[in-house]
């Protein structure tokens, strides 16, 4: 057998590789995407979950009568589906890392801890956006046939993206904690929902403005977006700062 392959490097040859962080970031993100394409575990379970939520909504609204316009609560219904769906995915994404001690192997490599955070959060953001994109048309078809859409077309994608950044950003930190606890999913829910309150409130306000349109909807939309963006900026920064402590514990 080629003995040279198993040899160590002479110490003098070691140099700091430039651009390593970016390479590591891409490697983690690519790995998560490859694994997801192979197992389709997260997107399938999240997608199915959000479909089930639609059924529950139908039951909830079944006695509301024809005078009731579901558009008035569309924003709330959508974000409710997204927040609970996201927790399913976040939990999965960190369980993968824990499973065979892979997280430990990751921490043993010369990687800056924030790189792990941003890579995992980006992966979660991508999967969340995919599920949201699949959910919206179904939701619109089932609940928003009469009345139509009041705002401009770009409003919904904008608020979806802004809101999902916060969910993925804070959720990745929380899932990293909850995956190490004895009631994983339950703990994640308990931690996540109250922390997400301001984000959801602002996102629902902006989404409702976009769906309903009409007078003042533009200013309501932008103040909602401002709220979401402010939350994203502060909370993602905090999550990033805390991640190193949490992942090393």
């Amino acid at each position: 057998m080629a003995d040279e392959i198993l040899r160590r490097t002479p110490p003098a040859e070691r140099t700091k590789v430039p651009g390593l962080s970016l390479r590591q970031y891409k490697a983690i993100l690519r790995k998560d995407i490859v694994m997801e394409l192979r197992t389709k575990e997260m997107v399938t379970s999240m997608g199915l979950y959000s479909l089930l939520t639609m059924v529950v909504y139908q039951i909830a609204l079944s006695q509301s009568g024809s005078a009731f316009d579901p558009r008035t609560i569309a924003g709330g219904l959508l974000w409710l589906a997204f927040i609970f769906t996201s927790m399913l995915g976040l939990n999965r994404s960190l369980v993968h890392e824990k499973d065979q001690g892979c997280l430990e192997a990751l921490l043993l490599s010369p990687v800056d801890r924030p790189v792990i955070y941003f890579a995992k959060a980006s992966g979660n953001l991508i999967f969340l956006l995919i599920v949201e994109t699949l959910t919206i048309p179904v939701f619109a078809l089932m609940f928003l046939q009469q009345g139509g859409y009041g705002g401009s077309w770009w409003m919904i994608p904008l608020v979806l993206f802004a809101g999902s950044v916060g969910i993925a950003g804070v959720g990745t930190l929380l899932a990293t904690m909850s995956v190490n606890t004895s009631g994983k999913d339950f703990v994640l829910t308990v931690l996540m929902v109250p922390l997400m309150y301001p984000l959801l409130l602002a996102a629902v306000s902006a989404t409702s403005a976009a769906v309903l349109g009409g007078d003042g909807s533009i200013s309501q939309f932008w103040s909602g977006i401002a709220g979401v963006a402010g939350y994203d900026a502060i909370m993602v920064l905090a999550a990033y700062a805390l991640y190193e402590f949490v992942i090393g514990a």
């Binding site: 930190l173 904690m177 922390l195 301001p198 409130l201 709220g227 502060i234 909370m235």
Partner: peptide, 20 residues
């Protein structure tokens, strides 16, 4: 870590609810 997040989140909740 969670205590820090909670303390940051509380004033954000105040502010966002005041905007509305």
């Amino acid at each position: 870590a969670f205590a820090v997040l909670a303390a940051i989140n509380a004033p954000i909740s105040f502010m966002i609810t005041r905007v509305l």
